[in-house]
Amino acid sequence: MTTPLLTATALHKRYGETDALAGADLTVTAGEVLAIMGPSGSGKSTLLHCIAGIVTPDSGRIEYDGVDMTAMSDSRRSALRRTEFGFVFQFGQLVPELTCLENVALPLRMNGVARKAAEQRAADWLAKLEVSDVARKRPGQVSGGQGQRVAVARALVAEPRLLFADEPTGALDSLNGEAVMRHLTSAAAELGTAVVLVTHEARVAAYSHREIVVRDGRTRTVVAAAS
């Protein structure tokens, strides 16, 4: 029996007249890759932001490692994001003024690791993702595919237990998208990091272990018939 790492129940989130979430449930098990699929505007990103502690739901419960996240103080929640979670978004969101190496080292620096040690580990991660050559470049000087690999390195460098990825390949062509997904899933597997992956692309979702579908702010789980 596997214990859930994160459990969300009956999440509701309203923006003005829009019910972005209207009763969403989800469970993430340690080490698994879970895909969240569904049409545009169905609430995938809102769901991801809620369970990642970026957005507070209007109602519902989110338990991370047995602790109710919605009841945490803001500072406790941001500490959790920094130490336990990693993030990759559609557009890398790297800091433009820093080199790629410094970007990857940043999460370690924020967790108090000394500069030299942090940059050494960052360099190892760039090598693992096969983008060592961009270490000294700034994000504006690298391709979209290289930038996303740097973003994956930055998300995993602090060895989070849970990685949140929202359309991580959304801006890439097929070849680069495949490379990012291969690297992301194999590195996460090595660390035992669970991944919550938002995507509307089936080929990307096929890198997951299972999927849930969001429609009109509600989650549906369909279990494929065993063959």
Partner: peptide, 12 residues
């Protein structure tokens, strides 16, 4: 939905 799940299982 049932078909989609089956397709994804095969794609996996």
């Amino acid at each position: 939905d049932t078909q989609r799940a089956e397709h994804l299982r095969f794609m996996r």
